[in-house]
Amino acid sequence: MAKIIVEVMLKPEILDPQGQAVASALPRLGFTFAKSVRQGKRFEIEVDGDPTPAQMAEVEKAAETLLSNPVIETYVVKVEK
């Protein structure tokens, strides 16, 4: 069974206060590695067997219309076996 992964991130120019809050919490816990943090979403979509090109096209459409808001976000679709 394959998993289709859709990752959604805020566009770089859109302010991400949640990511900033995480970035400022890290040093308080002693983690000093982070220059900045941006927070996104990951969707794991299970399908039977290997995804067909038609299914991938549908996922692409869903990513563009529902899973992400193209006004503020970008997305990446990939497959994990």
Partner: peptide
Amino acid sequence: LCESHLLPGALTRNSNL
């Protein structure tokens, strides 16, 4: 209305959280 594209732009998390 923004999500429906009847209005442009989007509403996001308040900057002070």
